[in-house]
């Protein structure tokens, strides 16, 4: 199982993903720059990613608290998600996401 992550410099990497891990944890554990300050509590919006268009519909829709927290992210788009709210499963093999800009 893999996830493709495009960093803020535009470089794409294929990371091995594990079932039951949050997308944020996978990205963080591979050492990519994702702040994830609240450790996945949906409390900081520093794990903001853009999901590739053809994947948007395949993910479970965001819950209310994720939409609320996205208010604290920058440049939110219709395909914006918080990576800590996406649990990896075999159906997500091949998912592609782009790291969103960071707030200082």
């Amino acid at each position: 199982m893999h996830v493709r992550v495009v960093d803020r410099e535009g470089e794409e990497r294929e990371l091995e993903a594990l079932e039951g891990w949050r997308l944020m944890e996978i990205i963080r554990d591979w050492g990519l720059p994702i702040k994830a300050e609240c450790g996945g509590a949906c409390a900081c919006a520093t794990c903001h990613v853009y999901v590739a268009q053809d994947w948007v519909e395949k993910l479970h829709p965001p819950r209310e608290d994720e939409l609320d927290r996205l208010d604290e992210a920058y440049d939110v788009r219709p395909n914006s998600r918080l990576a800590c709210q996406i649990l990896f499963s075999p159906e997500l093999d091949g998912l592609t996401v782009v790291l969103a800009p960071e707030l200082a």
């Binding site: 604290e72 920058y74 800009p101 707030l103 200082a104």
Partner: peptide
Amino acid sequence: GGGSFQPKKPPI
């Protein structure tokens, strides 16, 4: 802790 809680600055 992790430092002072300060307002985030958007990268405009």
